[in-house]
Computed example of a mutant assay.
Amino acid sequence: MKPQKKVLIDSRWAGNTGIGRLYQEVIKYAPDEASCAYVKSKMGLGSLLTPLMLGEEIKKSTADVFYSPSFMPPAFSKTPFIFTVHDLMHLFYYSRLHKIYYEQVIARLAPKAKKIITVSHFSKSQLVELLHIPEDLIRVIYNGVDSHFLANEEEYESARPYFLYVGNRRKNKNIPAMLTAFAKAKIPNEFMFYLSGKTDPELEALIVSLGIQKRVRFLGFIEEQDLPKLYKGAHATLFVSLMEGFGLPIIESMASGTPVLTSNTSALPEVAGGAALCVDPQNVTAIALGIEQLVNDEVFYVDCVAKGFQRAQEFNWEKTAAETWETILS
């Protein structure tokens, strides 16, 4: 049996988010040679003081290595540390303060890491080009897809066929363009567009102006156990973001046997691997034509189902966790 290593982990990221999902899966598959302890601070995830807090937590610990599933490294550490940068969205779609923080704090601390993990080759290229992090310091480890999506045979009960969007409301998600394209697409009016989360005044105004109030439904918060049947019941998933570091809904939908319309930019074609319909996210007409093709071209649709299901099986959380622990413990 290999000797145990003490690993201090930033557990504040546990929660119902993409990062939270990664954290849960990594912890679930922790090997015997990892003796895990956890950061005790309850400091908010968005606090700019997090690197200082992490430095203090590491100093107080007897850990051999520190691991964080997200982008905040410690400000100082004699202990080797590994952290994950999922994407560089903060440079493009957040506040100016976020941009400065990434460029002046994260970029300066990152080269001190033992290793930086990222979730796609697209994100790795951004880390190298935009933050000037040495390429050999970065390891790409893809996210996984839960076996529940592959095994599920239940469908969400809907009186009408529907397209599905799963995600938050951030600007990069491109929701106004998807709604506009849905309204513009020449498809039967019986088709609905279901979106996770709640609406907001801006989206409501857009929906009214497009005349699709009766064809759009916001589902609110979706429990993890309800996601597989929502994907399974959908005609297709729309995930036409302007930028993503990975894009979990792509492989979750594919694993459910549901085709995906996504973007031809950032990490999305990399994750789709030729098994989704990829379009220009800046072009509403292209998105609308993609929606039409998924409704009207049955041969293409069936091909997407088969290719997507096959592609999804190339991703699993156990592999993600194994590669992560290999990086932490090496």
Rank of each mutant, 00 (worst) to 15 (best):
R96A: 15
K78W: 13
P74A: 11
N189Q: 15
V216M: 05
A267W: 08
E25L: 05
N316C: 15
N264F: 07
V128T: 02
A306V: 15
L227W: 14
H86P: 06
S41Y: 05
L164E: 03
L294Y: 09
H86R: 09
W13E: 04
Y67V: 06
N172R: 12
D280F: 06
E252C: 10
R160L: 12
F300W: 08
S47F: 12
V39M: 04
E135H: 00
Q310K: 08
L210N: 07
V208E: 09
S263T: 14
L52R: 12
Y162N: 05
Q293P: 04
R96N: 15
F163D: 00
L227A: 11
Y142V: 01
A63S: 04
P69H: 08
I106P: 05
P188F: 06
A113L: 07
G247H: 04
L238Q: 03
A107M: 13
K40C: 11
P259F: 04
P74S: 11
L268I: 04
N174Y: 11
S47E: 11
P161M: 05
L91D: 02
L230R: 06
W317N: 10
S41E: 04
G211P: 13
E155M: 10
H132P: 03
S266C: 07
A110D: 11
A185W: 06
F309R: 08
A275H: 01
I207A: 07
P111G: 00
F92D: 14
G144E: 13
L48K: 13
P228K: 04
V305D: 07
L329S: 07
K60Q: 13
D136P: 09
K6Y: 02
N316T: 14
N189F: 13
K171Y: 13
N16T: 08
M89E: 15
K99F: 14
G247E: 01
T180P: 04
P188A: 04
L294E: 02
E323P: 15
P31A: 08
F182Y: 09
G245R: 03
A205D: 09
T285S: 11
L203Y: 10
Y156H: 03
C36E: 05
Y162M: 06
D32G: 12
D64Y: 09
T17K: 10
A322E: 14
A286L: 12
G44W: 10
R139M: 06
I207T: 05
V85Y: 09
L289Y: 15
V39H: 01
A275D: 03
A177S: 12
L48Y: 15
S70R: 08
Y94F: 15
A63G: 00
G233Q: 11
I141R: 01
Y93D: 09
L49C: 10
P161C: 02
I207L: 06
R160C: 11
A14N: 11
I222N: 08
T118Y: 08
G211V: 09
A30G: 09
F66D: 05
L277K: 01
N283I: 05
W325H: 05
S147R: 14
K214E: 15
F163E: 00
K124Y: 01
E318I: 12
Y301A: 03
R21D: 12
N168M: 04
I287E: 09
I187P: 13
S123C: 10
E298I: 11
Q104A: 14
K112H: 15
E244S: 06
